[in-house]
Nucleic acid binder design. Sequence first.
DNA 1: ATGCCTCAGCTCCTGAGA
Length: 256
Amino acid sequence: MKLATWNVNSLSVRLSQVLDWLQANPVDVLALQELKMTDDKFPKDAFDALGYHAQWFGQKTYNGVALLSRTPATDVVKNIPGFDDDMARVIAGTVEGVRVVGAYFPNGQEPGSDKFEYKMEWLKGLRQWVKAELEVTPKLVLMGDYNITFDDLDVWDPVGLQDTIHCTEEERYHLRALVALGLHDSYRLFEQPAKSYSWWDYRSAGFARNRGLRIDHILVSNALKPVVQACVIDKQPRKNVRPSDHAPVVVTLGPL
DNA sequence: ATGCCTCAGCTCCTGAGA
């Protein structure tokens, strides 16, 4: 079973790239973030034609998440139960016995800002809910655009970017607290190339100079850890004309 | 350089992203 996550930065603009990628990489589940469209605009038929079921949760201009799957997702949940939020950031469903949570974590803009405080509250809300979900469904994957780096290995310029957004101790504390629920960063379960990132700034030729951050993650639960076979970042779509600023991340699970 | 790109929208500038 293969599961992937990709922040597409507008599904309208990126639809043909997503369809091309799915044809070349027929994963079982793909979580999308930053659809930037209302629900009525979601291109359900295009995914149908490729043999994917879709669940989506959109919003005008910003945010918006979707879950594509080869077999239908059940017990679909939108946003974090118990956390009041007017932004569309989370979609969860059960696929082939695995609880899959796709999430677009808040950016936070700047430490100390209102948006940063919202990010901290959102992270607390997510953690409480994921804790409960794990008790119900131990086989769980939490994947998406976390907008947080784990450590300096995930940062192209750890000195220059120390304590800036995505790299603060407070954000990393919350990320470690999620892991402490019994989750594992599937990417680091394997030896990986040095300077591996999942996002590169559009400005200043960030991708060409590999000035990036690893902020898109796939966490797997204790119950799934023994069957994780691989985790890779696919940089190919970042080389497209008019790419998303994020690359897809793909995890491969063996028989459950 | 409170910028550099890119995207959406009450669109020809602004806010937000990361």
